[in-house]
Design a protein around this nucleic acid. Structure first.
Length: 611
RNA sequence: GCCGACGUAGCUCAACGGCAGAGCACCUGUUUUGUAAACAGGCGGUUACCGGUUCAAAUCCGGUCGUCGGCUCCA
């Protein structure tokens, strides 16, 4: 436990984001311009397909899209043509004009446009308006730029299917995505960043760094980890296990199969069946692969007799869960069917919720800081009273649980963004959203309050009064799904992991064959010290060995030639800083061991300038 | 699951109705190498799988499997 980073480190972590407002956002000038670009795209598509039916075309985070129903499927080759028509429209500098319309006018205007008619019906209570530029007219609230000439440089990016209004019950439309910026430079930068993101794609790096593979013979969505990927998993898991232990959680193990009956009792079956694999019929009972641990942990809790003095009981487990995700939803490591969760269930009294909450947040902050995620905020996922049937329990239980979460967050001074309808069926959640090095958001940690499952599964403890009481259960995950978190780490670090996580921490590169025995003794020494060291004993030139170690993003390359053998040193080259110079073997060993032990994010070796 | 695109050697890609190719990787030699790619030779594919059209299919058509981009940031 001596190796654990001190808690002071967490000071840089916790939530400095201030965005508790959920008021409707004003459209920014850039969004307005992109919205106008979407109109111009619809104009261009109508020129090419006069029979096109229009869906909607909003601005989005980095551009815009528009949905169409078209007589034939679009291919990527169609995009340049549409883009060219858009440029012509922009050159003509056609003014955008707004006009309020009555419902009757609108219905007449869009009589050939079934999707617009549906929208008119929906918005008929408010004020309806249309925007026109040139001959193109669209039902639209606006606002828009004053004329098409104000639209900056554009680029159409892709086309894809999209259900009308996002529901698979509706027809599938064809969506075209585009981006638009104020200046050519910003557009170029955006396209360049897309390219960078592709370079960092964890699926590409996973193959190049020999971390994991998928095989159709084993099945889609089931990642197979190679030795280097397993080394990474093991470090991730050990770290969280160590931290959880430090914070008073205790680890349990509950296997992979559970009787179907238990999921019926817990209330999962009707709501979760879609993502569960079909039943496994055994001789004595029908089983299911576990898609979550909660019922198992509650059952485990129930096998022991608990006094109020035992609470809180904190059960943690690194469990592999199986979810039958739809084939189209699978995505590398970030959406898989065999998923490992750092799951935890805390059984406590209502009075203990706040302190347990704050303990969980402290743990989460520490872990996030160690991984270098300093920018994150909390999304408070609440139930939606409009769709109460999706949730268990009555309204009173819900408002109590939600209030408790708010109180706990407020007491800790944590700011949060409430979102309706994102709760689990058993309770509200505080979800931690973190940004990676490329500024993309990932949902990682979660803390959830549950009054419903412990009631269904009959959890109880004996209170001070000698009578049985029901504990509250807090569900909590730190890194969430290991696979998904690994995907994020790979992309966040671009494969160049901090030394403590790197599958290979040190590459020994002997210059000539006569230096191999010395390098081998160094490698063996390091391996015995717990350093993941590899020896490149091929009869290749040094430059090649360096190049390959560098492409594998090994943090330290140790070059051994005549001078090093002579002096019992290694010539150190760091992945990031190049040639650092020679160090005695023992000195390098203690420096890197310290770097690993403290889980430093960047190299801690002395700067070559100061040597 | 749905819409679209794509599956050619371990990897990246070419050939687009007429003999399946290149670079890297791998293997074998030669080279013994000082901070991001030595040189030469060799091995390697029933073009994802199954069926169809054709004198002829990697190429055209159908099916299966897989991968990729998406599937409300609401007029």
């Amino acid at each position: 436990m001596e190796s654990r980073p001190s808690i002071e480190r967490t000071s840089r972590a916790m939530v400095e984001v201030d965005n508790t407002d959920i008021v409707e956002k004003q459209m920014s000038p850039l969004e307005r311009m992109r919205h106008s670009a979407a109109h111009v795209m619809a104009e261009a598509v109508l020129e090419e397909f006069p029979d096109a039916k229009l869906g909607i075309g909003p601005p989005i985070e980095s551009g815009f899209y528009y949905d169409f129903e078209l007589p034939r499927p679009l291919t990527p080759e169609d995009l340049p043509e549409i883009e060219e028509r858009m440029r012509r429209s922009i050159e003509q500098d056609k003014p955008f004009e707004k006009r309020p319309v009555t419902k009757a006018e609108a219905l007449e205007l869009f009589k050939g446009q079934p999707y617009k008619l549906e929208l008119i019906e929906q918005f008929a209570n408010g004020d309806l308006s249309v925007f026109q530029h040139g001959d193109f007219i669209d039902l639209c609230r606006g606002p828009h730029v004053s004329s098409t000439g104000d639209i900056g440089p554009i680029k159409l990016l892709s086309n894809a299917g999209a259900y009308w209004r996002g529901s698979e019950k509706n027809p599938m439309l064809q969506r075209i995505y585009g981006t638009a910026w104020d200046t050519r430079e910003e557009l170029e930068e955006y396209l360049h960043n897309l390219e960078l993101a592709r370079e960092r794609d964890h699926r590409k790096l996973g193959r190049e760094l020999e971390l994991f593979v998928f095989s159709p013979d084993v099945g889609s969505g089931i990642p197979l980890f190679l030795p280097k990927g397993e080394a990474l998993r093991y470090q991730m898991e050990s770290y969280v296990r160590e931290t959880q232990t430090y914070y008073g959680y205790r680890h349990v193990w509950t296997g992979h199969l559970v009787k179907e009956e238990l999921f019926r009792k817990s209330g999962h079956l009707p709501l979760y069946e879609e993502v569960q694999f079909p039943p496994l019929i055994g001789e004595d009972a029908t089983y299911r692969l576990k898609p979550m641990n909660c019922p198992s942990h509650m059952t485990l809790f129930n096998t022991q007799y608990h006094s109020y003095r035992d609470l809180p009981v904190r059960y943690a487990e690194f469990a592999t869960l199986y979810r039958n995700e739809k084939s189209g939803e699978l995505h590398g490591l970030s959406r898989v069917r065999a998923v490992t969760q750092d799951d935890c269930h805390i059984f406590c009294t209502e009075d203990q919720i706040q302190s347990e909450f704050s303990r969980a947040i402290e743990l989460i902050s520490e872990v996030m800081a160690t991984y270098g995620f300093t920018e994150y905020y909390v999304q408070l996922s609440l139930h939606d009273p409009e769709t109460a049937e999706k949730y268990g329990g009555d309204e009173g239980v819900w408002s109590r649980a939600e209030q408790m979460l708010r109180d706990a967050l407020d007491a800790l001074g944590v700011t949060y963004v409430p979102v309706l309808g994102e709760a689990a069926f058993y309770g509200p959640k505080a979800d931690f959203m973190a940004k990676d090095a490329l500024g993309r958001e990932w949902q990682l940690s979660t803390i959830q309050i549950d009054f419903i499952q412990p009631a269904r599964l009959g959890c109880e403890y004996i209170g001070e009064d000698g009578a049985p009481h029901m504990p509250v259960v807090i569900h909590r995950a730190v890194t969430g799904a290991t696979e998904r978190f690994m995907a994020m780490l790979i992309e966040h670090f671009g494969g160049a992991f901090p030394t403590w996580l790197a599958p290979t921490q040190v590459a020994l590169l002997p210059i000539a064959e006569r230096h191999v025995p010395y390098a081998e003794t160094v490698r063996e020494r390091f391996t015995r010290s717990g350093i993941r060291a590899e020896l490149d004993d091929r009869s290749e030139r040094l430059n090649l060995k360096i190049r390959e170690a560098q492409l594998q993003k090994v943090p330290y390359m140790l070059i051994t030639g005549d001078k090093e053998v002579e002096a019992d040193t290694v010539s150190v080259r760091s992945r990031s800083g190049g040639d650092i110079g020679s160090l005695p073997v023992s000195e390098f060993e203690s420096l890197i061991l310290k770097e690993i032990r403290t889980r430093a994010l960047t190299s801690t070796l002395p700067d070559p300038e100061t040597l």
